[in-house]
Lab assay of single mutants.
Amino acid sequence: ETFPLDVLVNTAAEDLPRGVDPSRKENFLSDEDFKAVFGMTRSAFANLPLWKQQNLKKEKGLF
């Protein structure tokens, strides 16, 4: 299941849709939104070091 970017960005855990893991908001973006937000594919993002993934998520309001 995916959700629009505005539902996930800068949203407190208690305000997220049911079933969304607040530590993994990026997994609930569509592939198109994911690429638009991070400028890379999911596989490229997954290959980044964890610290870099976290920094990007913070920068984009998805942490």
Rank of each mutant, 00 (worst) to 15 (best):
N55D: 14
P22G: 06
F38M: 07
P17H: 04
A13K: 10
N47A: 14
N55V: 13
L29S: 01
N55G: 11
F45M: 01
N55A: 15
F34R: 00
F28M: 06
K25W: 04
F38D: 00
E32N: 09
E32R: 09
N47I: 12
S23F: 13
F38H: 00
P17R: 03
A36M: 14
F38V: 01
L16T: 06
D15R: 09
W51E: 13
P17L: 05
A13R: 11
V7Y: 15
E14N: 10
K52N: 08
L62H: 03
L16C: 07
K25F: 06
F38P: 00
S43P: 08
L8S: 03
E14A: 11
D33E: 09
V37I: 11
E26Y: 03
Q54K: 11
S30H: 05
F63A: 15
D15P: 05
Q53D: 00
L56S: 01
F28T: 03
P4D: 07
K57F: 06
L8Q: 03
L48P: 00
K52D: 12
L48T: 01
L62G: 04
Q53K: 06
K52F: 13
L62W: 09
K35L: 15
K35M: 15
S43D: 13
E1Y: 13
A12C: 14
V9M: 12
A12K: 14
F45E: 00
S30I: 02
F34D: 00
D6I: 10
E26R: 02
G61L: 06
V37T: 10
L5Y: 15
A36W: 12
T2S: 09
S30K: 05
A36K: 13
K35G: 08
L62M: 08
M40C: 06
P4V: 03
D33F: 02
V9Y: 05
S30R: 05
W51T: 09
R24M: 11
Q54T: 13
F63Q: 14
L5E: 02
G39D: 09
F63R: 06
M40R: 01
V9W: 05
T41R: 03
W51A: 09
E1V: 15
N10C: 14
G19Y: 08
L29Q: 01
A36F: 13
T41V: 07
K25I: 15
G61F: 05
N27H: 12
A46W: 10
F28S: 11
L50E: 11
K57Y: 06
E59C: 11
F63H: 15
L48K: 08
D6S: 14
S43M: 14
D31T: 06
R18I: 15
F34A: 00
A44L: 09
A46G: 11
M40H: 01
